[in-house]
Design a protein around this nucleic acid. Structure first.
Lengths: 337, 337
DNA sequence: TGTTTTTGCTAAATCGATTTAATATACTTG
DNA sequence: CAAGTATATTAAATCGATTTAGCAAAAACA
């Protein structure tokens, strides 16, 4: 009864060959000199029965899947989920589907995910890479699969990437704190070798040194919020002279707000706060939190454009692009006494 | 140089047939009486060259992809992204991959997405359905693809679903407000026929009627936060006697907090607040917001278990399960004067 | 009229697996 | 020793598309 419709069944039904149908379907009809009459016949019939070619079979034959693999750090982080949504939308318009997943910044999980995507024959990759996966990414490039890195690059990987200007953003934000009278500023970050985190730290340190301030750098091995809160509480107890905190990521800042609340420290009277990366919460929090907002739309737009152009022109066409975008500094209540 | 390794190339290399290799790979070696010696030979060689069968080719032949399609309302909403992460994890352990996407509660987009997933031959579906897609879901079931509905069911669709007890949760929360002295309570919801929203409203109305209170139901066609803020501001201006608000979703509540802030109304002194669905922001907001928390882990666990069991036993095996989970009422500062 | 070109279409190979049905050999059994 | 059975392996069909190479028939040309 419910016999599958395939290009074969259609060919049989219409009494023509599958080749002809395939040509018509792929817009090669005129190139291959299929007559108008036959084209119409095929199109009409396909329309009538609502036939859609099997992507599976097509991919097997062509080696292309029209799928882009998007690997981010955490899809439930608003920064990444926003970018994911925008990439998805743009890709969709160009006939590509996105499949995404989260690495949780875990090296082994990332390697596994790349393996899964290779297995699924995705055509290209957009990756927010943890450190330690250089070899795997290089391997993808070597196999002719375009890769665009996001949020951070990998030192020994030669491919396109899209970043924000972490160094100057952190430098400016730190200077702003200093100008507002804070002198003992803590920089709370994750213990990671990722370049974007290093750059943020370097920007911070430069501003501190130029102004002869005291810096307190605290690296946290982030596993969950509760643990981070404890670390921050402990830091503030040990070092009561800290009068401001620069949080290097949004989730560290959320933990920080919890910590400050539990210590009953007032922002900004007792402790000034700025955060790298914006978040709805920061706008609504009392007091509202000053932050460095990343241009998610531009990041998504650049990443997908780079990837699509490589997919069209090939991995080796032209030089690799290194896109560095500016951030915007959103001054709120938390950063001035 | 880089000749692809396939089951064929291996067969040629080892001088045996592809059938044998396939049997070994699929654990049918003993059933098919392949000798230990040959099994070892095949396994060793596969190990050595790191061969992995093409999922594409396998899927084409077997009709199974080992992919589950997860369709949620908005992957950047923390409620859905949390569930997605948990489902992904459980599925992964059972050898299934998840591909997900957002409907934005849009009927047409949902239909399109179902089409895409059908095209990708996903083995089963977990769907947070907008109203109006009954036909498409029924069609999937009819084709033998298991579907589990989440967060809400569809009236004329007979399949498994996992929900929370919307009616009683809303009833209890409203009673709590009333017990705390609020008498003019607004219920702010989206204009939708979705059963979970209707149930929340019915629970609210029951409590109101039982206590002889005044109710103000406001349905908003939600497009973006700014517009919602305007609607809420306008409602509060028109109806100053409102002394408490029950928000039917987390994002409406966020808009509500913005609205209350802009009107300079104090929570809970001027307006009490409770919200259906919890959110990190609600815990950290000043004052903290009372909410009805959904058991995301249990929801994810139930949904994936139901689907996996259908995938194993078939769509028609046994009765459809209707799982209704309890919520927890998190009392914070916003709900008592 | 005979040869070449053009037009319109198709047979068959291919992508990389699974699976059915068959075959060849070794081993029992009466 | 012939016939039946168990063992170990494989040839070939199949999933549903794309693509190369080629074949008739019609048209153009000499």
């Amino acid at each position: 009864m419910n016999k599958r419709i395939s290009i074969n069944s259609i060919a049989k039904e219409l009494g023509i060959s599958t080749t002809t149908i395939s040509f018509v379907l792929n817009g090669k009809a005129s190139e291959k000199r299929i007559s108008e009459k036959l084209i119409k016949k095929v199109m009409d019939y396909i329309e009538e029965i609502g036939y859609k070619p099997s992507t599976l079979a097509r991919s097997l034959r062509t080696g292309k899947t029209n799928i882009i693999g998007l690997i981010v750090e955490d899809i439930s982080d608003p920064f990444f989920s926003t970018i994911a949504r925008q990439i998805e939308e743009r890709a969709y318009k160009s006939g590509y589907k996105i499949i995404y997943c989260s690495t949780e910044n875990n090296r082994d999980k990332t390697k596994e995910l790349i393996e899964v995507y290779k297995d699924r024959h995705v055509d290209g990759y957009i990756v927010v890479a943890p450190d330690g996966v250089e070899k795997e990414i290089n391997d993808l490039c070597a196999r002719g699969k375009p890769v665009v890195l996001l949020d951070r690059y990998l030192p020994n990987v030669n491919t396109d990437y899209v970043l924000v200007d972490n160094f100057n953003s952190a430098y400016n934000a730190t200077n702003y704190l200093i100008k507002n009278g804070f002198r003992n500023i803590a920089f709370i970050t994750i213990n990671s070798l990722q370049v974007q985190m290093i750059d943020r730290l370097l920007g911070f340190e430069k501003a501190i040194k130029e102004n002869g301030c005291t810096q307190h750098v605290k690296e946290i091995a982030y596993h969950d919020s509760e643990e981070a809160v404890k670390h921050i509480v402990s830091l503030l107890n040990r070092t009561p002279e800290i009068d401001a905190i620069f949080f290097a990521t949004n989730y560290l800042c959320v933990s920080g707000l919890r910590a400050l609340k539990s210590l009953n420290l007032k922002i900004p009277a007792d402790v000034g706060v700025v955060c790298f990366d914006d978040y709805e919460l920061f706008e609504l929090y009392t007091p509202s939190i000053t932050s460095i907002a990343q241009p998610t739309e531009a990041i998504a737009e650049n990443a997908i454009s780079l990837l699509l152009s490589r997919l069209k022109k090939g991995v080796t066409a032209g030089k690799f692009q290194k896109v560095i975008l500016p951030t915007s500094f959103i001054i709120r209540e938390s950063s001035a006494k």
